[in-house]
Nucleic acid binder design. Sequence first.
DNA 1: CGTCCGGTTGAGCCCGTTCAACGCAGGTGG
DNA 2: CCACCTGCGTTGAACGGGCTCAACCGGACG
Lengths: 229, 229
Amino acid sequence: MLNASVETSAMALGPWTSSARQPRDPLDEIASFATRIKARRGTAIFADGDDANYCYRIVSGEAMAFKLMSDGHRQVYEFLVPGDFFGYETQADHYFTVEAVSEVVVLKYPRRAVERVLAENSRFAREIQQMTARGLHSAYQRMILLTHKSADERVAWFLLELADRTRNSDDALHLAMTRTDIADYLGMVIETVSRALTRLKRGGAIAMQSVNDIRLVDRQRLELVRGEI
Amino acid sequence: MLNASVETSAMALGPWTSSARQPRDPLDEIASFATRIKARRGTAIFADGDDANYCYRIVSGEAMAFKLMSDGHRQVYEFLVPGDFFGYETQADHYFTVEAVSEVVVLKYPRRAVERVLAENSRFAREIQQMTARGLHSAYQRMILLTHKSADERVAWFLLELADRTRNSDDALHLAMTRTDIADYLGMVIETVSRALTRLKRGGAIAMQSVNDIRLVDRQRLELVRGEI
DNA sequence: CGTCCGGTTGAGCCCGTTCAACGCAGGTGG
DNA sequence: CCACCTGCGTTGAACGGGCTCAACCGGACG
């Protein structure tokens, strides 16, 4: 949802390194308030309507933020990867559910503590503001995707974005989420996602080791399919 | 885009009232830095890619925030009404254009000044954070609209939202924007917008005095068409 | 009076949805 | 060990809502 800037996902890989030269993690400010929790695949970290007494950050694994509609439809707002910070609200309640998509480890910060730091530390407040603003920016970009892009463009965009966010150096990409999750994220149905993946495979842009393990064989072609923005 | 909370649009109607009982306008903090500018219909207040050296607030009239794609498509991010605050970025540049949709008066705040106040006044920082978070929330809601709602539902939602945001007490609603603008906001084409309006008219939910002047005759029916959320 | 621009209406098409069948892997129980 | 079931993904066929293309309408303006 909101990812603290560039270097942060390193924190998922090892212990905090506060070495002088290293750019500091903006969330270090609240690190001391964190408790570490685990969630198994399919379990909720918090639910739509819950009191927003805590906010969180992914350490390892993946999660998804979504809202369930009264008509049964589900909109997946974001997939959350290591480094992502989420659940900090200015209002009383959470307005979406966050559920583990794989076995996931998260840090849990008490809202009170975060707000105390926000009030006292303007640098930290600026970081949070920046993360929220980036979230808004990317939500707007996704609107373009949802209104003007074809099925293949959406799926290509999804794959490239996920590869980018999980910072895979090689071309291997593991999809922790199901086709249904992807469909609900991209505003399509599962069959269309499946067909789009098949076309990308036939076109030589990707290869599939197994259903959930994809190789971005021809990244350039994939970017071509995705199109601008 | 970002609307400072409930009472703010009153500022568009009269001079600042800092009376004790009245809830204060959160943007009072930076009021002294504002300069007042006018823009005629169709002119840009700032453009995509411009240095984000200023941010703004609508006093009267309406504007729209949008992005032009390389393929010629245009996505309208938001319609801006009196009280709306926009253009404050954490990065260097604006990433969308804002253009007057009618004759519009805006207050223009230097970014430097705003950032100085942000650093010194945590209450103000909290207000800005809250506005951005609300913007994100409403962007997510609009995603649902763009993925799962029919043409009629979208248009009904648009009319109700606009009526709500402009706080019309009676059932008259003036559309300052063109059909093309509405279409680019709702992710449809102009013909579909037109047909949806015609159906709402035939269904008795609305009436049209002229092309741009709509009466919400049967609000309940309109809400029924719009559906949940 | 003619032109232009924005909006409306009509006809046909297309892409993604819907409905349905099938494939495949993992789990369970005889 | 195999038969069966269940959940998830893929593929096929037909449908339909919104898009495309095109004509028309009406008010503003020269």
